[in-house]
C-alpha cells in the first residue's frame, strides 16, 4: 500500500533524511516513473558496460521560474537540456543521472507531474535516468525544485566537433525559429503576462544530430543557443575559434509573435533563449546537403543558412540588417530585462 499521499502531501524534511520516508519517496515516485533495469539495481551507483570509443559527459543545473510553462516544465527541460549538451559533440547520448533539490512544503502532486514529464521525455528520447539523488532544503531556501542532470554519450569515430573549429569560409546554419522558449517563459512570468500561442521549443536534438553527422561527419561546430540566445552562442564560437561571423537578419527564422513580444518588451530575439534549436557550422560545400537533411527532419524543418564565418581579429559577430545596414551583434550584457525606454 502506498504510504505517500501524493494528492495532498507536501515535501517534508524527512523525505531527504535517508530514512524510511526517503526510501518511500524514491520508490513510489522516482523508481516507479523512471522505471528501468539499471535504476532498479538499487545501488548508489549504476553499473553498465562501457562502449568502445570516445565518451562525452555533460552536466547541467536547471532552475526555471515558473516551473510549468507553455510547452514544458522543469522536468522535460532538464532531460532535453542535458541530452542536447551531450549531443552537441556529435555524440549519441546513452544515460542520464538526475539529482533533485526539493523545498520543504512543495506539493507532491506537482513533484509527481514533473517526474512524469521527465520520465516521458527520457523514454521518448531513449535515454534512461539510471541513477539519482534527492535532498530537501528548508522552506524558503529553494524555489520549489531544482534539478541537476548529467549525461554521458559516445562519439562516432569519424566525428570531430568542437567550438574551436570554425574556419573562415564556413557557413552557419540554424535548425529553426529562434526565441520560442524564452518568449513562452516571459509570457507566463508574473507581471508580464501576455497571451500567445507560442510554446517552448524544448526538445531533444540527438536524433537530428545523428542524422546530421551521418550525412556530414565533417561538421566543425554544433551548439545549442540556450541562455543568451543565438547572439551569445555565435559570440562564444567566434571567440573560441578566433574568427568573426557575418549573419543576415532576413534569413534568421523568427516567428511574428516572438518579434511582437520583443517589440513590446524592448527585447531582441537574438538574445532570447532556445531549448530545442542548434547552431551548426560546417564547410561551405557541405552546407546545402546538410540543410536538406535538417529540413527533412521534424525538429529541423525550418532550418536555414544564416551567414558565414569570416576572418576577423576582433572576433566580432556582425549582422546585415533587414533594413540594409550593418551592425555588431554583441554579447549579452547582464540579463535581458524588459525595458520601458
Amino acid at each position: 500500500m502506498s504510504r505517500l499521499d501524493i494528492q495532498h502531501g507536501v515535501v517534508e524534511m524527512a523525505h531527504g533524511s535517508g530514512g524510511r520516508v526517503s526510501a518511500t519517496l524514491i520508490d513510489e515516485l522516482f523508481i516507479r516513473h523512471f522505471d528501468n533495469a539499471l535504476l532498479k539495481q538499487g545501488n548508489d551507483s549504476a553499473q553498465f558496460e562501457a562502449p568502445a570509443g570516445r565518451m562525452v559527459m555533460s552536466t547541467d543545473a536547471h532552475v526555471v521560474s515558473p516551473l510549468f510553462f507553455p510547452g514544458g516544465d522543469i522536468g522535460s527541460l532538464s532531460v532535453h537540456g542535458t541530452i542536447n549538451d551531450v549531443a552537441m559533440s556529435g555524440a549519441k547520448p546513452l544515460y542520464l543521472s538526475a539529482s533533485f533539490i526539493l523545498e520543504e512544503g512543495f506539493a507532491l502532486a506537482e513533484l509527481e507531474s514533473i517526474v512524469i514529464s521527465m520520465a516521458a521525455a527520457s523514454r521518448e528520447a531513449g535515454v534512461p535516468v539510471i541513477t539519482g539523488d534527492t535532498k530537501v532544503v528548508e522552506r524558503g531556501k529553494g524555489d520549489g525544485v531544482f534539478i541537476s542532470t548529467t549525461g554521458i554519450g559516445v562519439v562516432p569515430d569519424n566525428v570531430q566537433i568542437s567550438g574551436d573549429r570554425a574556419e573562415a569560409g564556413d557557413l552557419i546554419l540554424i535548425s529553426g525559429y529562434i526565441g520560442d522558449h524564452g518568449t513562452a517563459i516571459l509570457s507566463s512570468r508574473e507581471g508580464l503576462e501576455f497571451a500567445t500561442t507560442i510554446v517552448s521549443d524544448s526538445a531533444a536534438l540527438h536524433g537530428l544530430v545523428a542524422a546530421m553527422v551521418e550525412a556530414a561527419p565533417e561538421i566543425h561546430c554544433l551548439r545549442d543557443p540556450t541562455r543568451g540566445g543565438l547572439a551569445t552562442t555565435l559570440n562564444e564560437l567566434s571567440r573560441q575559434s578566433a574568427v568573426g561571423m557575418q549573419i543576415r537578419e532576413a534569413d534568421i527564422p523568427v516567428r511574428a509573435e516572438v518579434r511582437g513580444a520583443c517589440e513590446l518588451l524592448g527585447l531582441d530575439p537574438l538574445y532570447i533563449a532556445n531549448e530545442g534549436k542548434l547552431v551548426c557550422i560546417c564547410p561551405a560545400q557541405s552546407a546545402e546537403a546538410l540543410l536538406n537533411v535538417m529540413q527533412n527532419y521534424p525538429l529541423g524543418s525550418d532550418a536555414a543558412i544564416i551567414g558565414e564565418v569570416v576572418s576577423d581579429n576582433a572576433h566580432l559577430v556582425t549582422m546585415k540588417t533587414r533594413f540594409g545596414g550593418q551592425r555588431v551583434v554583441d554579447w549579452l550584457a547582464g540579463e535581458q530585462l524588459p525595458r520601458i525606454c
Binding site: 524592448g266 576577423d312 576582433a314 566580432l316 555588431v328 525595458r339
Partner: peptide, 20 residues
C-alpha cells in the same frame, strides 16, 4: 546602461565602424 544611452548604443552597435 540603458540601451538608449549614447555610450551603450555606440558600444553595442557602433563599434563595427571603428573596429573593422
Amino acid at each position: 546602461v540603458s540601451s538608449e544611452g549614447a555610450c551603450a548604443a555606440h558600444y553595442s552597435y557602433g563599434r563595427f565602424k571603428s573596429e573593422t
